[in-house]
Amino acid sequence: MSKNVLEFEKPIIELEQKIEEMRALSDSLDISNEIGKLEKKVNELRTSVYKNLTRWQIVQIARHPERPYSLDYIYLMTENFIEMHGDRAFGDDKAVVGGFATLAGKPVMIIGQQKGRDTKSNIYRNFGMMNPEGYRKALRLMKLAEKFNRPVITLIDTPGANPGMDAEERGQAEAIAKNILEMSRLKVPVIVCIIGEGASGGAFGIGVGDRVLMLQYCWYSVISPESCSSILFRSWEYKEQAAEALQLTANDLVKHKIVDRIVPEPEGGAHRNHKEAAELLKEAILDELKQLEKADPDKFLDQRIKKYSAMGYWEG
């Protein structure tokens, strides 16, 4: 069994392995009947487990170490991706990747936060935590796309912006603020896709757009459940409770109109089938792009003001 199995996945994966073992035997024995029964059982089990996931369990799937990351989606969804580096001022942030690519024959600018898969690559990618130069690289690429009238697609997957001393010195707050402002007035369509973790300002620094898509098993909020627990309850122990209180899943966010569309994941989560996950996301992006293609470039700011102004609950 893979070592990256979540607690609630265990019974499903054990059954699947049993089926595999029986298949291996089926050459010499006729046990197709039993296999069929087991398959039915595993399907039922999977459906029932995944139908009743708690918010905390969804957070765990969003962080699954075998989940597809930005570069996986980019290579699976697009052709001829050319990665472009650097902010032309300070350096190249490895926690974010971006460049031109061809999506179903259409030229696009695609930018995504990138995590690593093991310790070494995670250190290289800084765990997907961007620095100011990363936000500035992303903005440079978005402005380039605007100049040549190419739509922008961003992929969000970050535990947060880098909270280090150097990031503060180089203006983490200003970098994120600037991106949020500039993305609100970009004169090309912007499609935002949350593909894993969407932690606060760090995520939102590439997260303002015309359409916000969210994969089925992701989380997106102003703070991680752990940090929320430590601040509001003065202990890390209440993360499950905090996850519930924050209402951070795709279903929750559609209700509050923060997310426009939930992109379904393969059964059992995107980590079970990267290719299918990428196909489902690609389909959704293409569908949204089609609707945005005819938009008047001078109307984007007003439309985004309208969209974001409607988010909130107040009286008076």
């Binding site: 949020i180 402002l181 939102f204 102003v222 974001y308 988010m311």
Partner: peptide
């Protein structure tokens, strides 16, 4: 106000 607060960053900046 969780994610709704986060969206205020865009609301204020867009204005």
């Amino acid at each position: 106000e969780a994610a709704i607060s986060l969206m205020q960053l865009a609301k204020s900046s867009a204005w």
